[in-house]
Write a protein that binds this DNA or RNA. Structure first.
Lengths: 130, 130, 130, 130
DNA sequence: GTGGTCTAGACCACT
DNA sequence: GTGGTCTAGACCACG
């Protein structure tokens, strides 16, 4: 798995790592049960500190996406470990409002907004039959 | 204009102020040419530090939403000062991908995602004919 | 609030800090809304590293016990932020089984076990009317 | 004796093995004088490393539950080798306090706590007259 | 002055 | 060789 990290971005590195892995899970580049590189390996690859990677892994573990073991490294969990609940739907809605507001201000039309949202979804969708 | 600030949120206060103003512009509670309260006034009203409000105004100025004059205070700009360009569309798309990926992972269906996006847009839309 | 930390224990320092704070909340030495010492302050007091305290605070935040702000430090949350759900009851039961088994092996009588459990509860109970 | 090992748990494998054996002794599935499988045998059965089983046995020996002989393998000790002393009661009390504190914080009532403790005890009790 | 992030290096637990 | 813990020091965002 290739990962895109931009050290100049305001987004913390560990957040970027998290996002990359989440995107990987979403579009099936990372399947449940698949092993991720060790913290040391990934840190070397991305040229960042080991602890930064460890923090990303640890938070993904808390979010339910990964299982992390002392000796076996990090492994992608089965989907039932992190399936959406009502609370998630609410927070998702809230976060979208802030983005939508800026888009509206900037004159983005309803159709443009929806098609951008749709493209984003398709871009990361794991594909296959639902 | 009433502003909702939650000091307990992880989002920085100045970001919350920015978002409130942007939402206000989006749904026409704030019209182009309208004068905003002074930094001191708003700070007192929200019970936050003056610098915090100043930072929000300053960034909104950079984003093109406000015009800030030395003695006249802050005024909402005309839409052509901050209309979306290609660069904005790209950054919007990038940010949406991160959200969409988490949603996909958590099993949110395409229809659910789109309707959430649509609701968010309608919630902040300034109304009127497209 | 006085805190008991034993560097020679196998329990990680940050866990000990967490436990001390949880006990403090349980027996009302720490009330909702009360401010905790800053990470630097507590670290100096306990003679441990700042980051170790920060980790404890951060995990207590995740568990819902604390609200942590960039500038205001850590504050004890209101009880409704961390009230027990079914899942908690189950994990609590599981953890108790391991302890009970050892006690049974060691010939601890049912009555002794129950009274020890009861004493532990009373020792940390916040007192007052339910 | 069937043993439940969950590699995905945060609890170290050797701890899980220890707990299983202790629970076995508690509810009389393992009687004093009974021979346990050899390190190699159990390791093969559980599909874990030999050293892991050896560590569990060794610690159980230190705790007084097992006698381990060079060529005879591991045997369950007689109860008088590991009967509770004051020190054990104190450590048990300390461990219970940490659990009780979290329960109290989370609003678990005294009765709920006691009945959970009681159930845990009954679940592992070896049966018979006290 | 507060916590957050990142880096760095050491030692340990686990298998 | 894996992740976990602890220490330490630098810089930044926030107010």
């Amino acid at each position: 798995m290739v990962m895109q990290i931009d050290l100049n971005l305001e987004t913390p590195i560990y957040e970027q790592i998290k996002q990359n892995i989440i995107i990987g899970i979403a579009n099936n580049k990372l399947s449940p049960g698949e092993k991720l590189p060790s913290v040391r390996q990934l840190a070397a690859e991305l040229q960042v500190n080991m602890h930064t990677v460890a923090k990303a892994y640890s938070q993904l573990k808390t979010m339910g996406f990964l299982a992390v073991h002392r000796n076996k490294g990090a492994v992608v969990n089965k989907p039932d470990m992190y399936i959406a609940d009502t609370e998630y739907f609410n927070s998702m809605a809230d976060r979208l409002v802030a983005y939508a507001a800026e888009a509206v201000c900037k004159g983005v039309k309803s159709g443009e907004w929806i098609s951008a949202c749709n493209e984003a979804y398709e871009k990361v969708f794991r594909g296959g039959i639902e």
